[in-house]
């Protein structure tokens, strides 16, 4: 299983302050399937994404990331899974402001161990595909929000991870640029058979995805196929 969880529960705080945000959630994501995770604020969707992204250990239940059960994984094992198996796109692009666009991509490629020739070839290919060749030498601060998010997508797919997790990737963009970013993510998932899970509040994105998951008060209430 590329990505999935079984009877996943998660609580924050302790004693009287304890709050359960995920109540026994079970879901799996087949390779190549694109899913949209929606729900009101505080429903647990980001917590789910955080756990599936190996950034947080669940209180109980099982989680599989690329055939590895992570509930007892060490911090080093979680870091290794994030490095090699997962590509993240955040609400803000979160590029390093002191590096150029190209350097932002290079350090991520070097960190996952791509050879210099492969890395340069992929950067060129993605820059061409996502239309930011002209901006490679510029710092992110000189790019528009849409351009920055396209670079963030390139950073997420650079090492062709089997799992792509996106947290409100269009929230900071206008509809036109938002669609563009979502199309790029979906295209990568389809091309490389990757799982794509996107958290959003925007119902206009539904037509782009294979499946829609609705989460309310820590429970999956609806799962529909497009």
């Amino acid at each position: 299983m590329i990505l999935g969880c079984d009877d996943l529960r998660h609580e924050f705080g302790s004693g009287a302050q304890r709050e359960c945000v995920l109540h026994g959630m079970t879901v799996d994501f087949p390779p190549g399937e694109t899913s949209l995770l929606m729900g009101p604020s505080g429903s647990g969707k980001t917590t789910l994404l955080t756990i599936l992204g190996c950034l947080l250990r669940p209180t109980s239940g099982r989680v599989w990331i690329a055939d590895t059960a992570i509930e007892r994984a060490t911090a080093a094992q979680l870091q290794e899974l994030r490095r090699t198996k997962i590509g993240f796109v955040f609400q803000q692009a979160q590029l390093l402001p002191f590096l150029s666009v190209k350097q932002n991509l290079e350090i991520v490629g070097q960190n996952v161990g791509l050879s210099p020739s492969t890395l340069q070839a992929r950067i060129a290919e993605l820059a061409d595909q996502l239309n930011f060749q002209r901006h490679l030498s510029q710092p992110p601060g000189q790019l528009s929000g849409g351009q920055r998010q396209r670079v963030a997508v390139a950073r997420a797919v650079l090492h062709r991870p089997p799992i792509l997790l996106a947290d409100e990737p269009t929230a900071a963009l206008d509809w036109e640029h938002g669609q563009q970013v979502v199309r790029l993510l979906v295209q990568h998932a389809q091309e490389y058979g990757a799982v794509l899970l996107t958290v959003t509040h925007d119902p206009r994105l539904m037509p782009f995805f294979d499946r829609r998951l609705l989460i309310e008060e820590g429970r999956l209430t609806e799962a529909s196929q497009s």
């Binding site: 980001t46 950034l55 609400q91």
Partner: peptide, 10 residues
């Protein structure tokens, strides 16, 4: 905490 990179529990 690397989880802080996401918006926090939502």
């Amino acid at each position: 905490d690397p989880a802080q990179v996401l918006r926090g529990a939502g």
